[in-house]
Design a protein around this nucleic acid. Sequence first.
RNA 1: GCUGGAAUCGUGUAGUGGCAAUCACGGGAGACUGUAAAUCUCCUGCCUUUCGGCUUCGUAGGUUCGAGUCCUACUUCCAGCA
Length: 400
Amino acid sequence: MKKALEFEIHDRLPGALARTGTITTPHGIIQTPAFIPVGTKATLKALTPEQLSETGAQAVLANAYHLYLRPGHDIIDQAGGLNEFMHWDKPTFTDSGGFQVMSLGVGFKKIIDMDGKTDERPLGKKEKLAWIDNDGVKFKSHLDGSMHKFTPELSMQIQHGIGADITFAFDELTTLHHNYEYQVESLHERTHPWAVRSLVEHQRLNEVRTHRPPQALFGVVQGANYEDLRRECSKFLGAMDFDGYGLGGAFTKENIGEITGWMCQELPENKPRHMLGISEPDDIFDCIENGADTFDCVSPARVGRNGALYTKFGRVNVTRAQYATDFTSFDADCDCYTCQNFTSAYLHHLFKSGELLSNTLATIHNERFIIRLVDDIRRSISDGTFYDFKQVFLNNYYSK
RNA sequence: GCUGGAAUCGUGUAGUGGCAAUCACGGGAGACUGUAAAUCUCCUGCCUUUCGGCUUCGUAGGUUCGAGUCCUACUUCCAGCA
């Protein structure tokens, strides 16, 4: 059978786990390290595929849970698959719906705990919508309240119906607020067995669905911030026939790089590793240095829609009153469409007026900013300037 | 000119005799990491670091233990009629 994915390593960072490489999929290649924007519902909110492509995006990641509920994976299948459906000709990923086990169930605010405090504030959600057992997860649809059950098998069937190049095993994303005993139970009774079941079903579907290009499956490593669990999970999944690995779950921000290292030391070197849901610049540097190849995150798009734009001196809210009469480019150094053609005062006005273009322009800038950052990191690994670049960038970014 | 109605925070409003300031908008600030998010949180009369203190319901009087609320006059605005 034709390979679903090939991964080639080019350059390495001496004394660290960072590497550059190329992921080859049926819909094209991804130069790694790379940032993959998230288009949950088969669209990156506020952007056309052409606009997204102009930001330098090499791929896009959609979500099985959302597309299962609406429009339904069968409809995307009928449409010819995700690429055809959303008019995107580059590589695609789908998340398994595992994130929703957490976000609809526990719903704690912080997947990454900034300071280790046990802040158990729910995310403004009144009602628990997901219940876990060892077979799968029952969901109450956030759209209409109807009950659904996700299993590893169904998640793979959905992801094959959607037809992304790279899919993820169905996992349980625990939070840092779960205790060690729960983390062990989650790993042994759910994430590990679910990985096995996901892989079996995935391989079956790849053989049955010969009319479509073969899809790749990444196992997802969990274990929160426990070294023994991270290493154990990495070894367990690393021994299996996955095409790559998702680095998932909860991290303590201060040692996210160290945790990434625990996993990447155990995972097979010749397979790509995707860091799930991370895009803060310091986290990206730490994770790449410790072996992560690709990233996805909603943050650039979401914070952009909410008026926060990235600059090399940190994230700032363009809704601030000071920008009302700032007739300069928001970031003169930025090569994005927004910064090349509009002033801060105009962006400020669009947000204050609630104009839809605010979302588009802010999203373009933020996606471009993070994509360019990771592209620059990739070049810095190749030409040996990684540590200099990291120091200069982070000193500026966190100087305020 | 006559008749009726109205006047409360920057704006529109709630408050019909018992500690004025509800809600919305506007304004200010912040948050956002595998998207229940074009969302959410806080502040928004004055003074005070805090605790707390003080001021205000168009103007001037009156009734009342007590008035944004009832009465009188005035001012302004709105509607209708001339």
